Simulated scan of single mutants.
Amino acid sequence: MRRHLLMRLRAPLVAFGGEAIDNYGVIRDFPALSMLTGLIGNALGWDRSDFALLDGLQARLVMGTRLDNGGERLADFQTAQIGASDSGWTTLGEPEKRRGGEDSYKSPHLRYRDYHARLDALVALRLEPADEEPTLEEIAHALDHPKRPLFIGRKPCLPSTRLVVGMVGASDVLDALQRAPSPDEREFRFQWPRKEGTLKNARALDICDERNWKTGVHGGWRAVLEGTGPHIAPCASLSTLPELPA
């Protein structure tokens, strides 16, 4: 049995971003490997310039997702007249300065952003190798005590509940997701890495969700499976972590 960290991704608005096209910010049904890497890196206090740390963490992550509530899609039309002296909020605690030529401020910025409304997703992840830093325990502690504010995909998507659910011992990622606590005994949608469990009638996909953290570009393909399956009674190795102090 291998230990997996269970994470709850729940918020009024969630953005599992996909390939952006011009001014359209699209979303996927399941979170990307790069999004989980960035979320954990932010909790640990890493900066975008920590390329080696982020690339190393992303390469070690083995993760899958169970949709406890798929929510519904919401399309947001955004327009803003931005001036050269305007600044934006960041998780670094310092305002972000605007950049661009004089002509870039003459017209309003128009863009469309899709969101998941009322989505509730459970993530199971482990690290390979497991004994390198950061460990699962260090990641769980950072998620409970993040160095900076956390968000699920985009800055407006602030978690509405504790991210850390607990640890579970399971043979693979799908087994961990099926044995994780469930609100009921119905069937759920899953996405998990190929060779990390099987479900009848699962479909195989290749997704591009790994980021080169130095260039900021996504590339390569990751083999995953998607399917619907039942919840399995939690095993004896399921353990929750101590609650945060009030």
Rank of each mutant, 00 (worst) to 15 (best):
E133P: 03
L136R: 06
I139Y: 02
H141C: 07
A142R: 08
A142S: 08
L143N: 02
H145Q: 13
H145F: 08
K147I: 01
K147N: 12
K147G: 08
R148T: 06
R148M: 10
R148I: 02
P149H: 11
L150I: 08
F151V: 03
I152H: 07
I152N: 04
G153V: 04
G153K: 14
R154K: 14
K155R: 15
P156V: 06
P156E: 11
C157I: 05
C157N: 14
P159K: 07
P159M: 05
S160W: 11
S160E: 14
S160H: 09
T161N: 06
T161V: 06
R162E: 15
R162T: 13
L163W: 13
V165N: 07
G166I: 03
V168Q: 03
G169P: 11
A170N: 11
S171D: 13
A176F: 02
L177I: 08
A180Y: 04
A180E: 13
S182V: 02
E185G: 09
E185F: 02
E187S: 11
E187D: 15
E187C: 09
E187V: 08
F188Y: 15
R189N: 15
Q191I: 06
K195L: 04
K195I: 00
G197A: 00
K200L: 03
K200I: 01
N201F: 07
A204H: 08
D206Q: 09
D206F: 04
D209L: 04
E210H: 13
E210R: 12
E210F: 01
R211Q: 13
W213C: 04
W213T: 04
K214Q: 15
K214D: 11
K214E: 10
G216N: 12
H218Y: 10
W221E: 15
A223R: 15
A223C: 08
L225G: 03
G227D: 10
G227C: 09
P230K: 02
H231N: 10
I232L: 14
I232M: 06
A233H: 04
A233F: 00
P234C: 03
P234E: 03
C235W: 00
S237D: 12
